[in-house]
Simulated scan of single mutants.
Amino acid sequence: MSTLSELSAAAQALAEALRALSEDPADAIRLLAPLAAPQPAKATAGDIVGLAQATGQAAAAALCRRVVLAALARATAEASPPSYDAAVALRDQICGLLEAEELFAADAGEDATALALRDLRAAVAEDLTRRAANLARVRTVTVAEPLPALVHAYRLYEDLGRTDEVSLQADAEDPNFIGGTFTVLGG
């Protein structure tokens, strides 16, 4: 790569390819989120060459994190959290990553970038908060003895059609024996 614009385009293409790799936006978020987290810098020599190298590495890392954050924001907009709790957790995770990068940009004197990241963070937070308001909360259920998911579905929802949902939410190995403490969607 001979120019910064080529590096930027390649980073954007890579982040978009990772996002497009998965049909489920939740999988894309799981792939991209670790790449958006700041990594500690490697020590370089204290001479002028080492300082220049450190500056270049920091700039490249910031570029990569920022294109990943943009891809994460797109994946978040496409995501369908199953519950209020999942939407809030996703909002907090993505907004935390955006805020961390916003602080890096502000500390580096990149005010326009910091403002853009703040605006993106606000948009992600508003979107997920709005969507979370229409989702059911997760609740914890404790039962003394294992019962089939069919029984739990009727007792919890009076709806036998939600048997598979109860089994999935309870993370049951066998849907005929769901006991102890598990979580389900409310209402």
Rank of each mutant, 00 (worst) to 15 (best):
P38R: 14
L14D: 00
A20D: 09
G50A: 11
T55H: 09
G50R: 12
L21N: 06
D24V: 14
I29Q: 12
A70T: 15
V49H: 03
D47Y: 10
R30E: 15
L18H: 02
V68D: 01
A54E: 14
A15K: 03
T76K: 12
E16D: 14
A41I: 01
A77T: 04
V49S: 03
T55D: 10
G46K: 15
E16R: 10
A33F: 11
P25R: 05
G46V: 14
P25F: 05
P40Y: 06
Q57S: 06
R66I: 01
A45E: 11
A45L: 11
V68Y: 01
P40E: 02
T44L: 14
K42V: 02
A13S: 03
R74A: 08
A45S: 09
A52V: 08
A15V: 11
Q12Y: 01
E23P: 02
L72G: 04
L69A: 08
L31P: 00
A70H: 07
A37R: 14
A52K: 11
L69E: 10
A58L: 12
A77F: 15
S22V: 09
P38G: 11
D24G: 04
A75E: 03
D27F: 14
A17E: 13
L32Q: 02
T55K: 10
L31E: 08
G46T: 12
L69F: 04
R66W: 00
L31K: 00
P25E: 07
